[in-house]
Write a protein that binds this DNA or RNA. Sequence first.
RNA 1: GCCCAUGUGGUGGAAUUGGUAGACGCGUUGGACUCAAAAUCCAAUGAUAGCAAUAUCGUGAGGGUCCGAGUCCCUCCAUGGGCACCA
Length: 939
Amino acid sequence: MMNVKEIENKWQKYWEDNKTFYTDLKDFSKPKYYVLDMFPYPSGVGLHAGHPEGYTATDIVARMKKMQGYNVLHPMGFDSFGLPAEQYAISTGNHPASFTEKNIETFRKQLKMLGFSYDWSKEVSTSDPKFYKWTQWIFKKLYEDGLAKEVEMPVNWCEELGTVLANDEVIDGKSERGGYPVVRKMMKQWVIDIPAYAERLLDGLETIEWPESTKEIQRNWIGKSIGAHIDFKVKDTNESFTVFTTRCDTLFGATYCVLSPEHRLVDLITTNEQKEKVEKYKKEAASKSDLERTELNKEKTGVFTGAFAINPVNNKEIPIWISDYVLASYGTGAIMAVPAHDQRDYEFAKKFNLPVIQVLEEVTGKVHDNETHKNSIVAVVYDESANKYLTINWGNKGGRLFIGGTRKDGEDALTCALREIKEETGYDNLELVKETFKMNHHYYAYNKDKYFEIECTGFLFKLKNNHQVNQELDTDENFKVEWVSKEIIDEEIKDELHKKTFIYATNEIAMENDGIHINSEYLNNLNKEDAISKMLEFLEDKRIGSKHINYRIRDWIFARQRYWGEPIPIVHYEDGTSDALKDDDLPLVLPELMDYSPNKDGSSPLNKAKEWVNIEYNGKKALRETSTMPGSAGSSWYFLRYIDPNNEDEFANYELLKHWMPVDLYIGGPEHAVGHLLYSRMWNNYLYDKGLVPTKEPFKKLVHQGMILGANGIKMGKRYPEYSVNPNDIVEKYGADTLRLYEMFMGPLEADKPWNNNGVEASRKFLDRIWRLFIEEEKVKDEENKTLEKIYHQTVKKVTNDYETLNFNTAISQMMIFINAVQKENILPLEYAEGFIKLLNPIAPFMTEEMWNKLGHDKTIATEPWPLYDEEKCRENEFDIGVQVNGKLRATIKVLETDTEDDIKEKALSEQNVIKHLEGKEIIKVIVIPKRIVSIVVK
RNA sequence: GCCCAUGUGGUGGAAUUGGUAGACGCGUUGGACUCAAAAUCCAAUGAUAGCAAUAUCGUGAGGGUCCGAGUCCCUCCAUGGGCACCA
């Protein structure tokens, strides 16, 4: 029986004493491999069950790469600024640093316990002044380049936490930490101009091996949209405002404009009569929390300013409203409203009775040359009492349709509709409900052998009563008049024109699809694309607008009114100007305080350190900036510092960075998709632009590990503590190797997987079995034996490939297959035994070290060469393949590698069961796929 | 509402990318060893029918392409994640 605890202690000490995993960063003689984990926040509770999953995955790769002869950098550190340490400091009055150091100690111990091959000499910690000196230094560079700046802007203010938050820290209008309400508040804030990097961050995604879903999340977050800026003059003033729109081609359909309540022009243009209402509305909007503002299906609200804008294409006066459906923080905070073709504008226009002008006609049917133009109507008639619609049924001659018809010369659409209804169905007592959007329909009429292009107006009528007159039908009009339900219509009305007319008639929706332009002078008959470029030409020509690309991504709010973060290295002079600290004055170290709690007025606790704040700088009286940086500051560049962790002159030496960057493999949770992973890409891109790092993108390949769920299939945590698993307990009971093996065998790395104690038990049994077979039963003999040759080479091949592609579960499965084969033999040749131990080593490093030692080696296995396989020896020479008759499996046959197609065919056709199924049938063809299948087609 | 994933036995999951569905593990059942238990070893294990050979069904549902579909196409459902009045 192996003594797990003894073995694990022994080898942990050995690795440390012998510096087994020390990386010589200056050794450029070997190819490099940089394997990175997302470093943990050192909380008070230590590692959870999820940590070892990702960390084991990277460790396996790191260990294999090292054995394959790479110079591997596999570092670990701590993201040690953050709220819990600060809360501890507030409640105990102790400095958060000591609390943090204690937690780091626990983490370090646990990580060593789990056997990870980290080079601890490279450890970094973001709250260490030696580290944050350089965080401040990079911030200073950003400041000098105008990318870090102080701006007055609406921010996410969390009263409970006493701080502002970044957009990714606000979820559903509540703080990510604690779930406290977040409101909008105008404040002067430090921000980083991440929008300036929007395009580069978008482009960079094309060059990296990241999960497609994560790239997509980043693309959505950046939110690029191509459109135009258009200037609108305000009538009777010298004021004008700019709107952003993606559909400048619909400008002829703009019937009003909307400013966000915070827009600078609101106070200037509001008329005296409207002042009171506007003020009231502005106040309400300002007091709303983010949650209230974005509430689902909220009815549109708004107020008329009393002012009018001039539509630049036709000089029409259109009213200017304010509404909170226009956001101050997106675009220009002002829009032109085209209610016919935008759902939000449509709802707003309907509510406030604003005009709707259609400028796009949806095109249905197939367009042909030589079309004859007609004007026509489609009428939907609704009987409210029966909840049914009037249709005419042509049977197999044309199916079910609504009433339709062609307008006579000089006849208007409404008259035509009423006439057609009366003629075809006899109903003559109707109430007009609405006229829908016109459609542009193309069709071929068989009876006339002609192509038609029609402009069709749709109507919805309500039946007032059942009064009917006689139908006036043409001789060829042979249909039934039928009242049917909505379900029947959805199912049976196939004609595109009628189908769409029904949708627009019975729903309150704007026409948001593409189409051809109408009511738009020089844009008429153009499609969307052509109309946009023509309109842009017009706007640029008149100098009232231009093409513009807008991004959804906002400035990255980069200040927190908290203590436990990097101090922002800025001083403010009495004259209102500011300066960054000189390099020699970095790091700017946090002052010690008596009381770490936030101030009620929302200012930073650092304000309390009067002597620290009030200084003289460059011979002038100055105040230090008292905000600190957010948690994501240090994590935006920590991966660079691992490469040169003790450098006192630069954040990292460029030659070393050039050798080691980019990170070859980065594994961490998917929850950082738009926070850390976007921020660090931006910093790295920026440092690249400065010539300070060698690659644009920091992380070449990224993989997210899934979540380890409780045995109940639900996330582990406070809710179901009985289902939570502590890695310490598992190591204590089964050993670190077992925990590593189990977490890798559970399923694909990226998937969420439920914990199962039987699986842990089984993992330990598998390791015990190997130990028994290799050590106790003395099967291992230094002899030649061919019986295990093939499966050994297959195993080396599969495990090596699977480690490379991070398919650890199937690698383990292959090792089990190998062990099952060993079980059946009396001899295990030493060569195979040693090779197998090496394969298993990255997963179970402790036990394999001990086995290696027991097989007569006195040095670590970790630096031994990785086993190789012989492709020739992997090859099967006999296969079981299936024989299908008409797609159904009827037999399996044994074929040799040397068999020709004809041999295989012959074998297949001589199978009993195959013959049975061929009886009385004619063989059409026989398909032979070598090594796979024989497929016989018969009739 | 929009975007992206995912859906396979009692269960965790495999499937060479269009070629014998269910590898490997768990569980279950039977057997060996034992006074007995544990541990270990051997065997069976998708469902239904049949003594069996075998047959039918079977990868969320319904269609389609193909000699052949878990895999490709269309429609829908469910779960998870992201975004959400983004002009």
